[in-house]
Design a binder for these strands. Structure first.
Lengths: 238, 238
DNA sequence: GTCTATAACATGATAGAC
DNA sequence: GTCTATCATGTTATAGAC
C-alpha cells in the first residue's frame, strides 16, 4: 500500500474549459461520496459509477482506496489554506480585530460550504479514516491550524481579549464550532454563509448575554421564543 | 430486519452486584467499540471478543447489528436525558441564569465524558448510522433538544439575552460546540470537566472580547501566547 | 446461552484484452 | 485509459449441536 505522492499538480487546479480528466473525475466523485456517505460506506463501485467508469479502471489512476482518500484530504487542506491566505491578503491594513476575525471565519465557512466537498471531507471523514491516511494528513492540518494560532496570538498581543483566556482552547472552540455548522446549517441556520459567519463571530466575540459584564441594555426587539420541537432530523443532539 | 423494541428494561440499569448478563455485556462492548472505531469499522467478531463470546452467540440477544446500534443509541439518549432532568431537579430555585446554564452544560458534558460510551455514540456514530437506525433515534433526540429549547426560551422570557438573538441558532451552536469537545478535550482541554463546563459557559455567555460592548478593562494577567504548532494529531481542523 | 460450522453476500484489488 | 472478468478476503447472518 503506497500512500506517498497523494496529489499531483493537476489535482489542485485544472483548466476550466477542458472536460475534466479521468483522474479528476474520480477524485471529485470520491470527495463528494466520502463527504456524503463516509469512507467505509462508499465503495469503489459507487465512485466508479459517479465517475462514469468501471471499478477496475480506478486503479489506473490510484493505487488503492486509501490513497484516493489521502488525495482528497490533501486537496481539501490545500484549498482551505489557500482561502485563508487569500483572506489575509485581501485584509485592509487598519481593520478592527473583530472584523479581522469575521473575515477569516467567513473564508473558512466558504471553503466548507462553497468550495466543494474536498474541504468538508476533513470534517466528515478524517476522524474515521484509516490510521495511515490520518497520519499522512496531520501535518497539513496542523499547519492550517497554526495560521489560526497566529491570528489569535495577534489578538493577545493587541490585548483585545479578556485577560487570562486560554488561546489554544478558544481557538479550538471556535474552529470546532465552525466545522460543526456543516451538520445543521441547511436545516436552521441563517440564510447566507455571510450571515452565519457574522452570527458565529458575534457570538464568539461578544457572547449572548445582554447584561454582563456591566454592559448597557440594548434597545430593540426582544428575542422571540423558539419553536420547541425543532426540525425532524436532529443532527446536533446530544 | 426488525428494529422495534430496541431496548429492554435491563438495558437501562442492572444490579451493580450481579455480574452483567450476556446481553448487557454485548451492549456495553458494542457501545464502546462503536464510539471508538465507528459502526462500520466494528465487526460482530470485535464485539463478540470484547464480550467474551463468539460472534454467532450475539444473535441470541439481538436480531441484527443494526438493532444493536439502535439499542445503544436509545440507551444513550435515555441516560443523557435522565442527567438533564436530574440537573434540573437539583437546581436551586433562585439560581442566576448563567449558573443555570453552566449546570446544564456540566450535566451534558458529564453524560458524555463520564457516563460511558452510550451517550457519546450519539455524537460519534449517529451521523453515519444506517437510515433505518437514524430514523428510529430521531424522536428521542428531538425530545432531548426540546428540553434545551425550553431552557433557552426561559432565558428569553427573563430578557437576559441580547435582543434579537436567534434562540434556535444559539442553542444549536452551544450544543454542537459541547459535543465537539469530545474530539479534543483529552488533548488540550482544561483538566476537569467542571473547568471545561465553566469555560464553555463563560465563552458562550460573555464572549472573549475584553473591550466590547463598552465593558471596563479587567485587571489581571494578560493572555499568554499559545504554542503555535499545537499538538500532533489535529482533530479539529479545518 | 453459547458453541461450531457454514451459507450468502459484498468488497478491494488484480490480470489481461481492447 | 477503460473494459470485462475474477480472485481473495472479510462480513453479516443462519442452522443445529451441546
Amino acid at each position: 500500500m503506497v500512500l506517498t505522492e497523494a496529489t499531483t499538480e493537476q489535482d489542485r487546479c485544472h483548466d476550466r474549459d477542458e472536460p475534466p480528466t479521468g483522474r479528476q473525475r474520480v477524485l471529485e466523485a470520491a470527495a463528494w461520496l466520502f463527504h456524503r456517505q463516509g469512507y467505509r460506506e462508499t465503495t469503489l463501485r459507487d465512485i466508479a459509477t459517479a465517475s462514469a467508469m468501471k471499478a477496475g479502471s480506478i486503479y489506473y489512476h490510484f493505487d488503492s482506496k486509501e490513497q484516493l482518500l489521502a488525495a482528497v484530504l490533501e486537496t481539501g487542506i490545500e484549498r482551505i489554506t489557500a482561502d485563508f491566505v487569500e483572506a489575509a491578503r485581501a485584509m485592509p491594513v487598519d481593520v478592527a480585530p473583530r472584523e479581522r476575525l469575521r473575515r477569516h471565519v467567513l473564508a473558512h465557512l466558504e471553503a466548507l460550504f462553497i468550495h466543494g466537498p474536498f474541504t468538508t471531507s476533513h470534517v466528515t471523514v478524517f476522524k474515521n479514516a484509516p490510521n495511515a491516511v490520518r497520519a499522512l494528513a496531520i501535518p497539513s492540518r496542523d499547519a492550517y491550524e497554526a495560521r489560526w494560532a497566529e491570528l489569535f496570538d495577534r489578538f493577545a498581543t493587541e490585548a483585545v481579549l479578556k485577560p487570562g483566556v486560554d488561546l489554544a482552547l478558544q481557538r479550538v472552540l471556535l474552529l470546532s464550532t465552525a466545522n460543526a455548522t456543516l451538520d445543521w446549517f441547511d436545516r436552521l441556520g441563517p440564510h447566507t454563509v455571510e450571515d452565519l459567519a457574522a452570527a458565529l463571530t458575534n457570538q464568539f466575540w461578544l457572547g449572548v448575554s445582554a447584561l454582563e459584564p456591566g454592559a448597557k441594555r440594548h434597545r430593540g426587539s426582544s428575542p422571540q421564543p423558539s419553536s420547541v420541537p425543532t426540525a425532524q432530523g436532529s443532527t446536533t443532539t446530544p
